Computed example of a mutant assay.
Amino acid sequence: MEEIPRQAIVADIGGTNARFACVDLENPILNEMALSKIAVYPCSNFKDLETAVRFYQREHALLVVKHVAIAVASLVAGDVVTMTNLSWQFSISELKHRLGLLDLHVLNDFVAQAMSLPFLSEHEKIQIGSGRVDARHNRVILGPGTGLGVAYLVPTEQGMTPIASEGGHIEWAPYTDQEWFIKQFLVKQYHHVSHERLLSGPGLENLYVALATFRGQNVDFLSAVEITDRALSQSCPLAVATVQQFLACLGSIAADCAFTLNTLGGVYLTGGIVPKLLPLIEGSEFRARFEMKGRHSSFKEQSIATFVLAVLWPGLIGAAGYIKQKIKGIAYDFA
């Protein structure tokens, strides 16, 4: 009988940062306290994923750990994985061989974040607006960052089943006159205007320029960080309007995602942008747009709850839960 390992390395590789940690597989509680040797590196520091993993192993004396789960910001549909917003490509089987691993799991980054949901405490989930959660039903997690990730979590008899999604690349449908202008403005640049063209760091920058054009203003380029900072400080009306438009669009796609699998278990927002915008969300159109579903009035009556995650490492926690379930055969409950 193969001995069950005591430790595993987990990683969450986004378009900008590579996050690593070591997880204690014998710890019955799975949360941030179960993670150790957490490290965050700019992806630009490494030529490829193998180099990044080796660097982490050496820096933290973890060369003996042979079980690894890696969440990546990419579609994972075969052996070869091409990162969506990063110039890395790798073969899962070759990476496992070159690193000398016994066990390597590669999953979509938002599949990992979906896996984190049952392990989060109540204070790590900040509710936006009204609504309730039925833990027996599906959940969806989405989050703007370098791109726009979406994934689902479905309860089954075998425990948690995460479902990957590329919902961020669905065509964006405008609702207001201002949004129709934004759509036409972005069509000239991208032809296909997905939700990710608005709901991401680069998307915020797109919105800022499009709104400036809509208002007839000449503006200098602002980064997503500068836009959010000026909106939070109320020092730039255009930045405030940009963030308000961003949150309205986020409410719309959150509702579409909730519709897709009837996520009565809740809608959860994460990523590098939304948690920073918490002071502005309550006064935005986010929840109104989430409930604005025309003839489907029962959607509002069901009152699906929406949350912002206030947790540092959801991808690492989810990757840890995933590999622990695979190695130890533990079927975690939803309740």
Rank of each mutant, 00 (worst) to 15 (best):
T161D: 10
H296V: 06
E122W: 06
F185W: 11
L101G: 11
P275N: 07
Y268T: 00
S121I: 04
F290T: 02
E179D: 09
I281W: 11
G272V: 00
V76T: 05
A288W: 13
H137I: 15
D333K: 08
Y56A: 13
C257D: 02
V133Q: 00
K37H: 11
E122Y: 05
G201K: 14
L104V: 05
L247E: 02
D220E: 10
R295P: 12
H105D: 15
I128T: 02
L204P: 04
D134G: 01
Q245M: 06
G149D: 12
G294A: 10
V225D: 06
I70T: 07
G265V: 03
F46R: 06
L120C: 03
L247C: 03
V23R: 00
A34F: 14
K47I: 15
K183S: 06
V68Q: 05
L101W: 08
F110C: 12
I182D: 07
E157G: 07
Q234M: 09
M83F: 09
L35S: 04
Y268W: 02
L148Y: 05
E179Y: 14
L186V: 15
H191D: 12
F307Q: 01
Q189M: 14
L280D: 07
G294Q: 03
E94N: 05
K324L: 00
L25T: 06
Q189K: 12
P279D: 01
I330Q: 14
D12S: 11
L269M: 02
A224P: 02
T228W: 01
G329K: 04
E282Y: 08
P162S: 15
T260E: 15
M1P: 12
F46W: 12
V72W: 10
K47A: 05
A320C: 02
G216P: 06
P28M: 03
E59K: 06
Q158P: 00
G266Q: 01
L278C: 04
G203C: 06
T156P: 02
I317W: 01
T84Y: 15
A331R: 13
G168P: 03
M115K: 12
Q113E: 04
P5K: 05
A77G: 12
M115L: 03
H123K: 15
L211A: 14
L101H: 07
I141E: 02
Y268L: 00
E282V: 08
M115H: 11
K300T: 13
G168Y: 03
V133N: 01
S91N: 11
R58G: 12
R197F: 02
P28H: 11
G149A: 08
I38G: 04
E32P: 14
R19N: 08
F185V: 10
Y190V: 11
G78R: 10
N206L: 10
E122A: 12
A39M: 04
Y268S: 00
V64H: 13
S252C: 09
